[in-house]
Simulated scan of single mutants.
Amino acid sequence: MSFTSALREPTFAAREMFAGSDSREGTRALAREILMMEPADYAAAFRGSAIKRAKLWMLRRNACVVLGNIGTHKDLAVLEAMLVHEHEVVREHAAWAVARLGRHPPQ
């Protein structure tokens, strides 16, 4: 028995940037995209969305945690770029993720 049904209200459809993020690689790609996103791109991607209550720096902090947990050495460059972010919490989470990935062998 399935408890899901086809989406009937297009308003609730996933945003284009989330397409494919239901896989591990897709999630990593989305996290990298958030870390590299410019503020204007963030505003455009989430225009009219409640997610804009979360500021870009908050999503970047979360993206660092995602990559720290499921990232690979291929993600180190984008994480290292966050080591100089203006928000201390982003820098701290980026440093944690870099250290965590550094303890794992390259994949």
Rank of each mutant, 00 (worst) to 15 (best):
V66C: 04
I70K: 05
H104K: 14
W96L: 13
I34L: 15
H93T: 10
R53I: 10
D22R: 02
H93P: 01
S21P: 01
L35Q: 08
R15E: 09
F12D: 14
L67A: 10
V78D: 00
A97E: 02
F3V: 10
I51E: 08
S5P: 00
V98G: 14
R60E: 15
L79P: 07
L30P: 00
F12R: 10
G71A: 09
L101E: 09
W57L: 03
E92G: 12
V90F: 11
H104A: 15
R32N: 09
R28H: 04
R15F: 02
E92V: 15
A63H: 05
H85T: 07
I34A: 10
M1A: 10
V65L: 13
M36N: 06
E80Y: 07
V90T: 12
R61F: 05
L56H: 05
N69A: 13
A31M: 05
A45N: 01
R24T: 09
F46N: 03
A54N: 13
M36D: 09
T11K: 03
C64K: 05
D75C: 00
D75E: 04
L101Q: 11
G71F: 08
L56I: 09
E92R: 15
C64Y: 07
G102C: 13
S5H: 08
L59K: 03
R32I: 05
T27A: 10
A6K: 04
